[in-house]
Nucleic acid binder design. Structure first.
Lengths: 351, 351
DNA sequence: GATCCAGTCTGGATCGATCCAGAGATTAGT
DNA sequence: ACTAATCTCTGGATCGATCCAGACTGGATC
């Protein structure tokens, strides 16, 4: 059995408080005594105050929870999520806080339990799906949190971008190039929908909030160009991964007039699409492809996309949690986006 | 103030134990009473047992610590480290364990404190540098741990590859192709060495254990081909990053006979090297480049490399921690590696 | 009808620390 | 020399739960 603080106190012949102070507040005792305590502690093999006991008493843990509303191990396959995490880690490092990555099981009850059992001082919720249940559980615990949710509640801390306007900007880039027959590509467009083309009667039906907002932004641009929502082809992918993007594009109906452009809701989907559309044996007429996020792989692939900084998002989120601005008005941070035009998009080829 | 378990007990008119059992062991009380407890708890806004208090009493946290012996936010820039983390996350998900990512400050004292303050049941230590101090601190706490250290102690849980043999295999591939004038590229080859070519008198002087083992493996192959250590040019990079790799290669002395091959200790370094050596305005005579790890970016770049699975490493490490095999002999897992030959390596061009 | 047993529920002890009001001893101030 | 201030150190209360030995019921067993 490991010795405890009490054992050290008895060995040295002082009170427990004094030993505690030797570790936590050196100014509360004489340097000599402190040294004597530390020495015998070391010699007894006492590893210092137990973190759990300390947390209980102090009411403070020194860790922030990071929640991905998707499987945790999947999260790492999404480069943008990794950048976000990098930003969070950077801010946490500065605050000497640890990060608790909590895996959320699929079923809501399990997810609830996981959130309730996490020993943290607050949460950064990276929203990649439905999250209201999660947020309510956090609220129930009375812990502070920051979301990147598509539509934050009044007063909630939030960091994000104007998804819809950003999406609109890429789409306008394409309508400007003359594209009229396009396919939109997102993941989780409709619940349980198989990979492939869909008729979505209303954008509002899309359950995944980010996908919904981006599709809506695309639609805005096309509406301005005289193309209404029901005329747009929507492709859906089961995951936000390259292979899923590739698979979705392969399901484009052969024979009928193919789209002249594919607008993806993320770079990984777009890169998957590019692979297929630029791959060997394809129709030589190039199809324009655009992405979203501007991950590292986008530039070498020449992908036209919308840039947003995952690091900034993560950093801001963690900062909002770790030292929140006193006035509630500055607790929602809108980050900028930029349209980055590369070679993957071009004018409609003449037929 | 949030209500506690005691408050709920008083409200319902039962003992604290009973409320505790309502959450933790439903079989210990009648379903009706349990329901009544849960209902009033919900209505009072009691979020369930406090995780910290529970951990203290139970002596079990439900989280494993993950340590990177480099800055945490840097770790995410290393694709192989991310794969490792993915594997760890996968195993943790299965065990309903959380992952505590602990940022380690540069100075040993701070790192020690960080490890001592982490509320976890054990550690996965991803060794990317010197780690003995870290491991000693963990041992001091009496917590189990798994390392990927270059040279594990007898009895320690470990998962890794035969670094030296694997490195030797790529190098033999190159000597087989006729390469004799080569440059080795690693990071942290010598402490505080500037980027660029070095004379390293002895491989054993290299402080970074992985770099050392891989360089030694390279040297083995060249020794077999009649080239002794001091004749080998070693390039060093300050970081294990693409830009650092590129910078190191740019420092190759111009004018003198350039190497016909660059053997890097990692794919990111190799990719940086490739960028420079295949870039515009370069000597048209192609220099062979090899990497190590086979990260996702290696294949599209045509990089010859040694494949090892980061996911497997992470998964095995976490498994070794979460349900260790009873017999100590199987607590060290040697994972396989494969030489993957692609287009970045070829025969020595005739001059 | 005494015994045994399973099913429920209780309450004091405990996990390992930190907090805080205050006791004693020293030093400083006038 | 006497009060005030400062420095050290103490010990009981507390953080919020879980553990465990045992009490109490009501029904089955022989």
């Amino acid at each position: 059995m490991k010795p405890t603080l009490r054992a050290v106190a008895e060995a040295v012949g002082v009170s427990r408080s004094t030993v505690s102070n030797a570790y936590g507040r050196p100014d509360q005792l004489s340097p000599q005594l402190r040294q004597r305590i530390l020495d015998t502690a070391r010699q007894m093999g006492y590893p210092g105050p137990d973190p759990t006991a300390r947390s209980l008493r102090r009411g403070f843990v020194g860790a922030i929870g990071v929640l991905f509303t998707s499987r945790l191990s999947y999260a790492f396959t999404d480069p943008f999520a990794v950048r976000f995490l990098t930003g969070v880690a950077e801010a946490a490092e500065r605050h000497e806080s640890s990060l608790l990555l909590v895996p959320l099981p699929g079923e809501p009850a399990g997810a609830r339990k996981a959130v309730e059992n996490a020993a943290v001082d607050g949460f950064c919720v990276y929203c990649a799906g439905d999250e209201e249940g999660i947020l309510d559980t956090i609220r129930g615990r009375g812990l502070p949190f920051v979301t990147t949710s598509a539509r934050p509640r009044e007063g909630d801390r939030w960091v994000g971008i104007d998804e819809r306007a950003a999406a609109r900007s890429v789409a306008e880039h394409l309508t400007g190039l003359g594209h009229r027959r396009v396919a939109l590509l997102g993941h989780d467009v409709l619940p349980d929908a198989p990979t492939g083309p869909l008729r979505v009667t209303d954008v509002a039906d899309v359950p995944h909030p980010t996908t919904r907002d981006r599709l809506a932004g695309f639609a805005d641009a096309f509406a301005a160009a005289g193309i209404r929502w029901p005329e747009l082809t929507v492709l859906t992918a089961p995951d936000n991964t390259r292979v899923a993007g590739a698979a979705a594009v392969r399901k484009l109906p052969a024979g009928v007039e193919p789209p002249t452009a594919v607008l993806a809701c993320s770079d990984v989907l777009a890169l998957g699409a590019l692979e297929v559309l630029r791959g060997a044996g394809q129709d030589p007429r190039p199809v324009s492809v655009t992405g979203f996020d501007d991950i590292a792989e986008a530039a070498p692939a020449g992908l036209t996309t919308v840039r947003q900084s995952g690091e900034d998002k993560g950093r801001s989120a963690a900062a909002l949690l770790l030292d929140p601005p006193p006035d509630a008005t500055t607790r929602q941070i809108l980050l900028p986006t930029t349209l980055v035009v590369r070679t993957s998009s071009g004018p409609v080829p003449r037929s």
